[in-house]
Amino acid sequence: MHPPTPSSGALRRLGTQRWTTAAKTSRQCAAIHMTTRATVPSTKQTLPSHAVRAAVAAPSSPTLPTVTQTAQRRTFHSTDHPPPPGPFGATESALLAAAYQHVPEHGFSSAALAFGARDAGFPDISTSVLPDGEFGLIRWHLELRKAELAGRAEEMFVGEGKGKEYKIPEKIEMLIWERLTGNKEVIGQWQQALAIMASPTNVPVSIKHLAELADEIVYLSGDKAVDPSWYSSRAGVSAIYASTELFMTSDKSEGFTDTRQFLRRRMEEARGVKGALGNVGQWVGFSAMGALNVARSWGVRV
């Protein structure tokens, strides 16, 4: 009934093979690229400097971070079955990982993709296999930074239980900040990326990513609530993250201290709102039960 299962595992294995060959070819091709690199669509870089960089970057490409294996999905997370294959195929991963190295310079653009394709040893035209072009590169960034969070959370909260205690909101703030620092490298290009993410065809996927990120942050913070606050905490984290991220794109302060302050203020506000709502809810419930019990004490059969 489920034939795709074994074959999907096989595909993944096949994919990693393809990935290593791609990496190998990229090393071999780096030299060729230096000579053949002529024009890259819609860019006017000085090619020599770039070609040198590509030649340097290519040998290190097998260690490029990949999200194929580590990506977590939101439905049923199993601890003793391996995670399902990630959102990117092996070829797609190789191409995007290589292209991502060019983002700080060329932005989330077709130019970065074209350079990445060359580095990974594919022909320039191969970027057309990506279903969503530059947006795929943005998705790569989002998945990569999200996948890194779990490891960073372990490092950050390592002192927990040994004298150091964090409250859940504190941990959420630390995690949001940690995720935002993942944007530092590409911060110059991030406004453009947000614009691409906000275009109508991309909005559903962008929102899904934001929701997944919020889920990851709340999960890593150790919040185990599974009542309606499951929704409110994730909505709150999404709102705070999105607004702080936008603020960060125009922050010129040293070490993004203004962004840090902005984040702290938003967290304070959220704490205030949550406290007020909780108090109102508690008061309503308490009054209702009180009224019912008074009625019962009068002998009313309710």
Binding site: H2, P4, T5, S8, F76, S78, P84
Partner: peptide
Amino acid sequence: RRPLTKEEREFL
């Protein structure tokens, strides 16, 4: 063990 399929995860 194989990963759970999408249908299995959705069912669970």
